[in-house]
């Protein structure tokens, strides 16, 4: 099964030129709106709460040690929680939606109908979803980190009376390019993993509507698993 996922991912990448086709770009824009724009409220809320919770715990742990506070904030929010929690929100919203939509199309013979119009379901359905999810994952991760870190700075100012300007200057002195790059790499890989796993389970051969919920739950569980495994591998390799 893992090989089949890799095959699908490879097929998607090799069909990238199909993005030049207008209907494929239309699907990508729709998916970008659904996965990206419509997730902003949830990501804002989760980012704010994570910033509040994490920084409160850090303040309790290290007190008024500003450098240590910022260092732990980068370790937790930039390196780990940003990409991971964004991926979890995306899985909750889009993984299940991808799997159920594609499964229903499979059961209703719409996938067959596309093939009969000489339209590749991989190019028309999977490719735009994968690229939309990668783009949305990178953008939402960055946005999540901005919200969580800004909340952290404000909470630190209120609780520890450390000025905002000092925190911002020190933050940009401490954070390295590698940390930002690794965070973006993680979010891109998570986007790829979640979309490929979800589309794979959506497109698997089905004969009845009763198989759709099974496909959805498998897509969600396996996407979560793939993200945690991917996170483990990237973290060990990069940090």
């Amino acid at each position: 099964m893992i090989v089949a996922h890799f095959n699908l991912a490879w097929e998607v990448l090799s069909r990238t030129p199909a993005l030049a086709r207008w209907p494929v770009r239309q699907v990508m824009l729709k998916q970008l709106y659904f996965t990206g724009t419509e997730s902003i409220v949830t990501i804002s809320l989760v980012g704010f709460l994570v910033g509040l919770i994490v920084i409160t715990q850090i303040n309790n742990l290290v007190g008024r040690n500003e450098v240590m506070t910022l260092q732990i904030m980068i370790w937790t929010i930039v390196r780990e929680l940003g990409p991971l929690l964004t991926a979890i929100v995306i899985i909750g919203r889009s993984s299940s939606a991808f799997a159920s939509e594609l499964s229903s199309m499979q059961v209703n013979a719409e996938i067959k109908s596309l093939r009969r119009m000489a339209i590749s379901p991989i190019s028309y359905l999977v490719l735009p979803r994968v690229y939309a999810m990668i783009l949305a994952s990178i953008t939402l991760t960055f946005y999540f980190q901005v919200v969580a870190i800004s909340t952290g700075w404000i909470v630190t100012k209120m609780r520890m009376d450390i000025s905002l300007s000092s925190q911002i200057i020190n933050f940009f002195e401490i954070i390295s390019f590698n940390e930002i790059a690794a965070s973006l790499l993680k979010s891109a890989v998570f986007g790829m993993l979640v979309s490929v796993v979800s589309c794979y389970h959506g497109l698997r051969r089905k004969s009845a509507m009763t198989e759709v919920p099974q496909a959805v739950s498998q897509a969600v569980i396996r996407s979560l698993l793939a993200v945690f495994v991917g996170d483990g591998i990237i973290t060990v390799l990069v940090f």
């Binding site: 086709r21 207008w22 209907p23 939509e101 719409e110 109908s113 009969r116 119009m117 339209i119």
Partner: peptide
């Protein structure tokens, strides 16, 4: 080209998008 018994439409597309999909896909 094929005209299936029930039209062979894609349910998340509008009628116009369905009618023109193969034309625009193949340019």
């Amino acid at each position: 080209g094929l005209i299936p018994a029930m039209g062979g439409l894609i349910s998340n597309l509008k009628t116009w998008e369905n009618i023109t999909l193969p034309l625009w896909y193949h340019g």
